[in-house]
Write a protein that binds this DNA or RNA. Structure first.
Lengths: 221, 221, 221, 221
DNA sequence: ATCTAACCGAGACGGTACGTCGCGTCTTCAA
DNA sequence: TTGAAGACGCGACGTACCGTCTCGGTTAGAT
């Protein structure tokens, strides 16, 4: 459909640029990130960057998005273990210096830029959310939580869980500035499962999960 | 301790500058915020800004901090109502355009700047955290939750609740880009109270609170 | 020797900047000369100025130097007429407002800046001095003054004449603040020719004073 | 005539400020001279400077003027010796770093500031010119040069000599950047005496060359 | 002896220009 | 057509001095 004439774009350049972007973020931070520096690190001209990304915000979103692509939803057999695993994965991601410094920055920038907001959503947010959805389905199949009833309440609960999990981890690491360890993950997981189960009424008592969570919490640090 | 000589700094200038900063944030956004523009709006020379703040990050932290100072912990008589009130207050704050555009930005910047991180903590984080501490004490006096036992677990729980509440609200508004209404606040409040009470066992049985919350959620939009 | 890559510098910009500099000097004077104003007049960005000149001193030296390039040594057939012509040319140059306001200023600045001093020398001083050398050669060919004997005294005399001519014109216009007209030029020319011819001996009359002077001069350094 | 009440100004402050100005000129040069630095060196507040001088130009003129006050016209018995003495005195003055850096600068500034021009004239120029007038009177009394005949030509000649002597010394030191030693002073003195004596006739042999020059001068508009 | 007006230091203030930096675009030449 | 190189217009940065303006406190002549 397009004219395929002329010299094709270098695929190596794309990868080198994204790598260079993350490398520069680690060393210089978001505020110190410059297109010229990224180009120099990638051994590429500034022109080449601008042929692929309109500005540094979009470049950084893509550079970060590639990292979020690595998140996986493993099946440990219990909802508790699955949640804790994802929380720790997410925390490990947020602990990387390039993510710490740039994630909130692009989100801030996106509040004034609708195009950027969409790019953030597809490259970052949706990649996290699918884990929540997947974990939920598995727990439903295992009978740990009731199946979707198709109501708005169901969708709302997915959103709430997502905001609670992602928000809590982000806030603890980036705002409170503290580490996420297994104990904290267990505590959050416990709070979530209790909170969700509690509202169901008679979903099967089982408080042992939270007990474990609180033990972990109590033993923390 | 200080030399009391020379012309004293103008207190009016301080207020005018902070007002101008918020005004400029609303109109121009974080990315468009300029020291020169702030100075012009405040009717003040640029140098006067730099005598008080080392850079725009610190200025913006103080300008935002003043808003977080307005948060109040009202006593509605029940933990549920108190939490929901605070969540809605916090959400209203995050809905202000100057906060939406700037809060995540300064947090991002603070990840590479220890001085800024401290300033964020004292001007913003601690001002929110005191609400959690205060609400907890009230609930304890009312017997809704057990008193502190002085263990690390207690402090850890305060931190967890803080990260969950603040993180969830921030994430919903700034990342998910959705509104926080009474129904969502009730759902979050319910999830929290169940999650916390659950592990305690017999903290007062009744789950009706969350029921109301879920009804609200279900009926939402 | 040089990399020939990249976009070449605009030659039009160079000319526009030098023109704008002179124009701004006329209107604003040396003290009111602003890099930003020059850039605006030249229709050029401030950075373009700084890519070519390190500071306004060097820029002004080049802008003035171009004017000194216009000085010409005409051949009127007699030394007297040649001197008077050059004196009047030089006076006309110093009467231009951009030269009046800026020449002494850059010379003053050059006393603390060796690089600037060199630039002043090549762009301004040497361009005047060649007129003295050329006029001297012509007068020698015409037999009006004796030929060079290759001694240091010869070179010293060139320097002396240069300092007397240039110094007197500069001083009259810039310090005394008076005009240089044909009469004054003739008087200076006469004083010079008498003064130089007198010392040559054989012209009649007491030479002891100058004799001592020339001996001293010859023995100088 | 004026109210003499209140605390009188400190005379020590005046001297300290002028000393500090010269000291700062030596160390920082004209371009690096700041009022705050002068005040600090003098142990005085900036306010105190501005109570006495309107701006740094006027301050510097006064600081330099005090040095020119030290010029003396000694009586060596011959015009030649008197001229050489004054030339060397003047050269020694121009060799002082504070004078080298500041004299041309204030003259340049004065080209756009009539008040400053007057101050330069009274504080600096006239103090040099009186030496020329005095030396001329002495030479006339000694019979070395004819007495004034009250014509414009006489005044013109004084001006010419002044411009030649002062201009040549200034130009050699500040523009050519070379030293003035006894040999050079003698050469300039010789050139001057020959040039002046030549045209008078009878002062020692035929001066037909200057005749043309003086006709030009006398006949000038 | 005490007014009291002018002085003084300190330093904040409104300005203006500085020289630098990064942006995103453009122009040139080579592959 | 892509790419490296680098000049370009633009606009904000943070700094440095300017000359003015409060401040509290001092000082010496007039009362």
């Amino acid at each position: 459909m397009m004219a395929r004439t002329g010299r094709p774009r270098s695929a190596e350049a794309d990868a080198a640029i994204l790598d260079a972007t993350r490398e520069a973020l680690v060393e210089q931070g978001w505020g110190g990130l410059t297109m010229a520096d990224v180009a120099a690190r990638a051994g590429v001209a500034k022109t080449t960057l601008y042929r692929r990304w309109a500005n540094r915000n979009e470049l950084v979103v893509d550079a970060l998005g590639a990292l979020f692509d690595e998140l996986r939803m493993p099946d440990h057999g219990t909802l508790a273990a699955d949640i804790e695993d994802v929380v720790l994965q997410f925390a490990a991601l947020l602990d990387r210096p390039e993510v710490r410094t740039a994630l909130m920055a692009v989100i801030a920038e996106s509040s004034h830029d609708e195009g950027l907001r969409r790019r953030v959503r597809t490259a970052i947010v949706d990649r996290q959310k699918r884990l929540v959805v997947l974990g939920r389905h598995r727990a439903q199949r295992r009978g740990e939580i009731p199946p979707d009833d198709g109501t708005a309440a169901t969708r709302a609960q997915v959103d709430l869980v997502f905001d609670v999990v992602a928000g809590a981890v982000v806030h603890r690491i980036l705002v409170s500035g503290e580490r996420v360890d297994a104990a904290w993950a267990a505590a959050l997981s416990g709070l979530l499962r209790e909170g969700l189960a509690g509202g169901r009424g008679g979903l099967g008592g089982g408080r042992e999960g939270l007990g474990g969570g609180r033990e972990g919490l109590g033993g923390g640090r």
